[in-house]
């Protein structure tokens, strides 16, 4: 009961903040940033697997969010909408930062090395393994298993066939299993 009341209060104050942000209040936006920066950064990090790039993408999310927040109509939870905005911006960030050779020859970026992933304090064991996955397998795994998108949605977001999304997910699971069992 107490938890319900706390949640209701938090949602109420978040709703007030969002309304203030919509009217151009930057102080309210700073508060909204503080509320959600960890959530946004962690999702960017899981998708991009590079701390510095994840920080850049997080900044991009909050800059674009300032302009897009008027589109939030309150029909879904703000965090659900924020996750969707963040996922799309992080994916387009990854696309923008691929060099021409990677685009032409379809080179796949490898994930974070084992030591750097292990050094990410605060993440759970699965997240640390996920950061080591190669790019496509990682993005599909994060979007499907962690964020709950369907393969059809992922295929459209990542511009790939539904079958590819499923096979990348299978590949991710195999790699995670192998690494987990050898730990």
């Amino acid at each position: 009961m107490l938890i319900d009341a706390e949640q209701a209060f938090a949602q109420q104050s978040e709703h007030t903040l969002i309304e203030r942000v919509k009217s151009g209040d930057q102080v309210a936006y700073a508060a909204l940033y503080e509320l959600h920066v960890k959530r946004v950064y962690s999702l960017c990090l899981r998708l991009i697997a590079d701390k510095e790039h994840a920080e850049d993408a997080t900044q991009e999310v909050f800059v674009q969010l300032w302009h897009k927040i008027a589109n939030f109509d309150g029909r879904s939870q703000f965090t659900t909408w924020l996750h969707s905005v963040t996922s799309n911006i992080a994916i387009s960030y990854i696309r923008k930062h691929k060099n021409w050779l990677q685009k032409v020859v379809s080179f796949e970026q490898s994930g974070m090395d084992e030591q750097s992933a292990a050094d990410c304090q605060g993440l759970n064991g699965l997240d640390k393994l996920v950061l080591r996955l190669p790019e496509r397998a990682r993005m599909v795994f994060v979007l499907h298993a962690i964020e709950g998108y369907r393969h059809e949605e992922i295929a459209s977001m990542l511009d790939m066939a539904v079958g590819s999304s499923k096979s990348q997910f299978h590949r991710a699971r195999q790699l995670l299993k192998e690494w987990y069992e050898n730990e």
């Binding site: 930057q26 936006y29 700073a30 940033y33 920066v37 960890k38 959530r39 950064y41 962690s42 990090l45 701390k51 994840a54 920080e55 997080t58 900044q59 909050f62 800059v63 300032w66 990410c120 304090q121 605060g122 993440l123 759970n124 699965l126 997240d127 298993a145 962690i146």
Partner: peptide, 22 residues
């Protein structure tokens, strides 16, 4: 996957850059 997600914050303060941009 069934545990609540553990989120971490960035190493540096990103707000000044965002504030400048907006």
């Amino acid at each position: 996957l069934n545990q609540p997600k553990q989120d971490i914050g960035p190493d540096k303060n990103l707000w000044p850059g965002i504030e400048r941009a907006i």
